[in-house]
Nucleic acid binder design. Structure first.
Length: 516
RNA sequence: GGGCCGUUAGCUCAGUGGUAGAGCAUUUGCCUUUUAAGCAAGGGGUCGCGGGUUCGAAUCCCGCACGGCUCACCA
């Protein structure tokens, strides 16, 4: 095993070859290199939790019988003190625990196992918990079991995985060496768990509706296209579950929700991944205001349960999820955040007529104003997004959306031009979108027709006419309010992650050509 | 798709036209309570890819690939 290797041999290949040879040594000892099972008493993090409160004297005073443990873990550090003793750090991905192995404390065969070990290998140790003279909690090893081989070297022990590309493409490496990454995904899981319990406790039924749809609806977005072979049927990955969930409200479920993936064939950014997780929930007999109140309660409750506070750090800022959240109409927000515009402040008049809106949009740097045609609602929304969205750091409900850009929403009883709709912005991101659901089948059909007309004018994100949905509505859907919440973005807020890719385990990446 | 930045050893990075470097990892030797263990000696490189300029290119120029940020569109 120490023979000379040709100088031309690559360093990585050499390291892999060494590790394969070490694995062969395990097999030559008659041991399985990949055993099926290890009967543990503690995972590393549980052992640390249990023993770290006890100091050296306390541990010393306890009988060895009570300090016996059997712990598996991945070796993340190995400090050999000559040929007769060594310290190794075992990790379960969350915590680390040191093990102390010495030749006179383990059977000869186990020492032979130890001598084959490489960084990254999995082992199990039998031993007794103690503290070294520097006070480090450790296991004095009396027995050692080989559990699995790492044939490739671990990432840099000090820097970890700093290359974001490797972090996303090889998330497992990031997770092995970065407890913060592990924590991010644990917080995400807790968040989703909290939301489920929150809704379940309020009588919502969790359902699953088609991800593959014949008519992609419920949102303004471009879909992914696929095909069913035996039916010879073009299918679309859903852009939203909305229209199916409302069929269920029609079907008599008073409260339903779904947490699942949506797919939108759009660009990728720090706030967008082509597949993303959305919560949609619908409450019969409620309106947009009720959904807003429920949202405030949900977010504040989740923050309290997960972080013990409603104050969350967000980059340089601190976000308060304490209810109630601020409410601004879209126009108010555009005026408020448009007042320092270089070309002069935005006034009420600048937002009141089509020509004024076009002029204002131009002033906000929105290009090709003509593409919005004569739809003044689109212009207002564009202006709002241009001047206000990024400034909405604290939770803010934006209300009074133009009806023209809200074809699935009821309008306000006092103004058919304004949708009874809201969007919630936090940290400069759109986190939620909800409204009182349009349930008049004739009005819905008219709005679908208007969408189809938009599509014919070149808006490829405009909705399609869904006849089956109109038929469902025509049987009578009770009044209801619905809302969608971007789970990934909410997870960003809860983990202070400024990129959506940091809260998605395997974000979409272009395949790498030169790798095998 | 546009703009900016990046790509050098397995990892993290230095190297502004003149023989390809450091730390960690790896290999060998010493060390039985260390902890980014230590000490000593080695091995490991198509400098992202392809062209060009030059006596000479990791370095300058052009193109391409991949990645990040950002703008545009969306949640």
């Amino acid at each position: 095993m120490s023979e000379e290797r040709p100088a031309s041999e690559l360093s990585l290949a050499e390291q892999v070859a060494n590790r394969r040879e070490h694995r062969e040594e395990i097999r030559r000892m008659g041991l399985p290199a990949y055993p099926n099972r290890f009967a543990l008493t503690h995972l590393v993090s549980r052992a640390v939790e249990e023993w770290s409160p006890k100091d050296a004297a306390t541990l010393e005073a306890m009988p060895e019988e009570k300090r016996k443990v059997r712990v598996p873990g991945r070796i993340l550090a190995l400090r050999r003190m000559g040929k007769k003793a060594a310290f190794l750090d075992l990790s379960d991905g969350l915590s680390r625990l040191q093990a102390y192995v010495r030749t006179d404390a383990v059977p000869e065969a186990d020492w032979k196992i130890f001598e084959t070990l490489d960084l990254g290998d999995h082992i199990g140790v039998d031993g007794v918990v103690f503290r070294t003279k520097t006070g480090e909690l450790s296991i004095k090893v009396h027995g050692l079991t080989f559990l699995s081989k790492s044939l490739r070297p671990m990432p840099d022990k000090w820097h970890g995985v700093t290359d974001v590309e490797i972090r996303y493409r090889q998330r497992y490496l990031d997770l092995i060496v970065s407890p913060e990454t592990r924590r991010t995904f644990e917080v995400r899981a807790k968040l989703v768990g909290y939301i489920r319990r929150f809704l379940d406790a309020r009588g919502f039924l969790e359902v699953e509706t088609p991800m593959m749809q014949i008519i992609p609806g419920g949102a303004a977005a471009r879909p992914f296209v696929t095909h069913h072979n035996t039916l010879d049927l073009p299918l679309y990955l859903r852009i939203a579950p909305e229209l199916y969930l409302k069929r269920l409200i029609t079907g008599g479920f008073p409260k339903v929700y779904e947490i699942n993936r949506n797919f939108r064939n759009e660009g990728i950014s720090t706030q967008h991944n082509p597949e993303f997780t959305m919560l949609e929930f619908y409450t019969a007999y409620a309106d947009a205001r009720d959904q807003m109140a429920l949202t405030e309660e949900m977010f504040a409750g989740a923050a309290l349960e997960i972080h013990g506070t409603t104050e969350l750090p967000w980059g340089e800022n601190k976000i308060s999820l304490a209810a109630p959240f601020q409410r601004l109409t879209m126009k108010e927000a555009a005026i408020e955040y448009g007042k320092n515009l270089r070309s002069g402040p935005i006034t009420e008049e600048d937002l009141s007529t089509l020509p004024a809106l076009r002029k204002t949009a131009g002033r906000c740097g929105i290009e090709d104003v003509e593409r919005f045609g004569d739809v003044s609602g689109k212009l207002l929304a564009e202006i709002f997004e241009a001047v206000a969205e990024e400034h909405l750091i604290q939770p803010t409900f934006i209300i009074d959306y133009p009806a023209e850009i809200s074809p699935l929403s009821k309008t306000r009883p006092d103004d058919p031009g304004i949708a009874d709709r809201f969007e919630l912005f936090i940290g400069g991101m759109e986190v939620a979108n909800g409204f009182s659901e349009l349930n008049d089948p004739d009005e819905q059909a008219d709005k679908f027709r208007a969408q189809v007309a938009e599509r014919e004018k070149g808006d490829d994100e405009a909705m399609l006419f869904d006849e089956d949905y109109i038929e469902a509505l025509s049987y009578g859907m009770p009044p209801a309010a619905g809302e969608g919440i971007g789970i990934d973005r909410l997870a960003m807020l809860f983990t202070n992650s400024l990129s959506i890719r940091d809260v998605i385990l395997f974000p979409l990446m272009r395949p790498r050509g030169e790798r095998r």
